Simulated assay, not measured.
Amino acid sequence: MSRQDRLFELIQTLRAAEAPRTAQALAGTLEVSVRTVYRDIATLQAMRVPVEGAAGIGYVLRRGYDLPPLNFDTEEAEALRVGLALLARTGDSALVRAGQRVRDKIAALHGPAAWLNVAPFGAPFDDPHAGCVPVALIRQAVREERKLEIDYRVPDGEATCRVIRPLVVIYHLEVKMVAAWCELRHDFRHFRLDRIWGCTSLPDSFAGQGDALRTLWAEREGVDKVAAGLA
């Protein structure tokens, strides 16, 4: 969980609390250390969020404080509901869970919309217990511009070890792929996630190169920059 997300969850947890919450209890809810909670509380107070209390006693959020509302009109809210429901087709379990949290927030503001249904059929869900590489690991490497070492196996059984610079996660209807710069081939390559049998995040990064490489990849593939999220 990013620090920004954690601060948001901390505010929401304090809003829902009926009594002061100790740092220890908050740490358990957020799955962080007590020291991290103390730092986050200090950060919120510095941002003028009305958190009151003290270490050893507990913290409360002054009544009446809330985050800015989601200002979506009816069409925008329905577009979001359908788009979020379509996440089930990606097979990306972490994104599906995040999407459900967003859908719950939209429902809390706009009410339910049970008449909007999306068939969930698509790529199989990533299941680390079944040997699948979590898509969240790939997405994190793209965000952090961190190299990955992958054990890649093609249908004929040939296995290769590659060091890649992951650039774009591509969700097809029945399969997920990562577009990357392959250091073995010295060129762009596309790797199906269901053929990655092992994946290790390396300490080496390619910080500052991601945007330029994605632009070159989009030009090479003839991908529209807006559709690819590069604009």
Rank of each mutant, 00 (worst) to 15 (best):
A107F: 04
L202W: 02
E52R: 12
I196T: 10
V49R: 01
T200H: 08
A119S: 13
V168P: 02
E149H: 01
E75T: 14
A98T: 07
R62D: 08
T43A: 12
A79F: 11
H186F: 08
A227T: 10
T43L: 11
W181P: 01
Q209Y: 04
L184N: 03
G53Y: 10
A85N: 10
E9P: 01
T13Q: 14
V82Y: 09
G64Q: 05
L14T: 06
E174T: 13
R146E: 08
I138S: 06
D204V: 04
E145D: 02
A107G: 09
L86S: 09
V118E: 11
G229K: 04
A23S: 15
L30E: 04
A119Q: 09
G83D: 03
V226F: 14
G157W: 13
R143C: 09
V51P: 09
A23M: 04
V178K: 03
A159F: 03
Q12R: 04
A17L: 03
F191I: 08
T13R: 14
R101C: 04
S33A: 09
L61Y: 07
E174C: 07
Y38P: 00
V226W: 13
I164L: 05
G56I: 08
E183M: 03
V154A: 04
S33L: 03
A130H: 14
A231V: 12
Y38A: 04
D187F: 01
R185H: 11
A212E: 15
A123Y: 10
R39M: 05
A180E: 09
L14R: 06
G28D: 14
A141H: 04
P112W: 08
D40C: 06
A55F: 03
G28V: 09
V163D: 06
A114F: 11
Q100I: 13
P20Q: 06
G198H: 10
V51A: 06
R153P: 00
V34L: 06
P112I: 11
A180K: 13
L67Y: 08
Y152T: 01
V60Y: 00
L70V: 11
A141S: 15
Q24W: 00
G28M: 06
D194V: 06
D5G: 13
D40K: 05
T74S: 11
R185I: 06
L84E: 00
E219P: 03
P120V: 09
R220H: 08
N117P: 01
A98Y: 06
A114L: 12
L87E: 02
E18F: 01
A218Q: 00
S205C: 07
V169F: 15
D151I: 05
T29N: 10
A77D: 12
R103P: 00
V178D: 07
S2Y: 04
I11M: 01
F206W: 07
L80E: 12
L116Q: 12
N117C: 09
D40Q: 05
D224T: 11
G210I: 09
D104A: 14
V133W: 12
H110C: 07
Q100V: 14
A179P: 02
R101P: 02
I11Y: 01
R97N: 11
V96A: 10
L10S: 00
L80V: 15
E221R: 15
D204A: 13
P68T: 06
G83S: 02
P68E: 02
R62K: 10
T29A: 15
F125V: 14
G111T: 08
R81I: 15
